[in-house]
Amino acid sequence: MAKREYSFYPGCSSQKKASAYNQWVSTVSICKELDIQLNEISDWNCCSASIGYAGGGELPRLVLSARNLALSEKEHPGQDLVATCAACWLATREANERLNHDAEMKTDANEALKEAGLEFKGEKKVRHLVEVLIEDVGYEEIKQHVKKPLADIKIAGYVGCQTNRPFGIAGESFENPVYLDKLVEVLGGTPVENYDKKVSCCGGALMFSEPEKSQALVKDILEAAYDGGADMIVTPCPVCQMNTEVYQEHINKKYGTKFNIPSVYYSTLMSVAFGQSAKEAALDGQIISAKKLEAIASK
């Protein structure tokens, strides 16, 4: 039996060959190393992220997350629900807290869920995988698994928005959360000090509908990473990762910049430092290759 077990909500972007499939692959790898068992909620649905509001009203959106929670309660009693995607985590935790806080809303949600033969009880804790790593595993234990320290790599810890606000990781501040920097240090790398775009917005889903306005935001995030001497950016969020990586060429064309900086998940960093293969770390999922990590992985 695994040392730690959780009910797991992967979310749409983590599915096979979806945009954050590399996050899923590297997450599976580090969990194996840390003896964490993630039990996938069997028939989970989309949480509607933070952009479903045009079509979905308040209650339907809460019911989406309540269904996932109800399934988790049924299938994995006693296990915390854990998500890796910022939006999945936020939506699920919010629904959990709001329904538990508002008896009338909970009754309404359950009346709707009855149509699917389910009931939301509200007896779970909803957590981000980062919380599991920091609180349950701990930096000390993570350090013990480091076989190939990320020596001489300078990394800008880009926390972004939804992993940080409105809930954030327990014990961290909204304006300057330091868990990614601490993690980088534990893995043997050097965090960029005073990375001033650490909690700035990348445009989120509006990258799709308002690309130019969002790319202007990403330009500043990348520029600040370069200013701090970063070799790469690390982030916990699928949207942050994609927005900071895949549009660099568009930004270069528009602004005459020469950005070409890898943006990786913390799980990829950890996997490489744990001595796992490039494939396990999902380095083949980088559109902008993380050459320094590839070199360590092939050592």
């Binding site: 979905g56 339907p60 269904r67 149509e115 389910l118």
Partner: peptide, 16 residues
């Protein structure tokens, strides 16, 4: 169970 999900969402919309 897309059928169940849709029924639940329709019900939620109706209640709202």
């Amino acid at each position: 169970d897309i059928k169940g999900l849709k029924a639940a969402l329709n019900k939620a919309k109706q209640i709202e």
